[in-house]
Amino acid sequence: MTFQQVTLSLAEGFLENCRLFLETLLFSIPLGLIISFGSMSKFKPLSFLVKIFVWCIRGTPLMLQLFVVFYVPGLLFDTPMRDRMLAALIAFVINYACYFSEIFRGGIESISKGQYEAGQVLGLTKTQIFFKIILLQVVKRIMPPMSNEIITLVKDTSLARVIAVGEILLAAERFAGKGLIWPLFYTGAYFLIFCGLLTILFGYLEKKLSYFKS
């Protein structure tokens, strides 16, 4: 087994991690926004239910949620999950949407009432106020916690291993089975490089938004 072969094989696995990472972001950010609106709703029963849901998701391990999404449909409804990647994606999206929703809620609630009122007295609609005035200020404020959470997501993708999604750790374990241990440690390099790139990207975005203070 040459170094090059291992590198390629791990890269193939890491591609799955990247896919899970990107798709999770793509769906969990909008869903998180919806959940945050739910938890801020003035309609108490709704905000209560949403908060209970967020509590359940944040209060249990993601690994457990992976098992639930993967096994429960087959056990209870006789419709086994065939697509392991899809199961992982569903669990990740729900889990991360809940974490993001709390960050969004904190960000939205931290914007002063005066910003809304200034928009209102100028005759703007609620939608215009949110998208033209509030949103960018929220984005700026939630950048640090979001980058933390997103970097955690990169590493969490390898949890998909527990339902046998063919991600990088699973690939490395296959080598370990054949008596080759070093590829297992080598996987760390992939995560380090990916997270390093993300850190640079977030640093750039934060700098982009540093032109104003709010």
């Binding site: 200034a118 005035i133 709010s214």
Partner: peptide, 20 residues
């Protein structure tokens, strides 16, 4: 209400400019 309130303008104690 949006139409009606345009008859008035309001300058706040704390300015409330849009920072971005």
């Amino acid at each position: 209400i949006r139409e009606k309130r345009l008859k008035f303008g309001l300058v706040f104690q704390s300015f409330n400019l849009f920072p971005q």
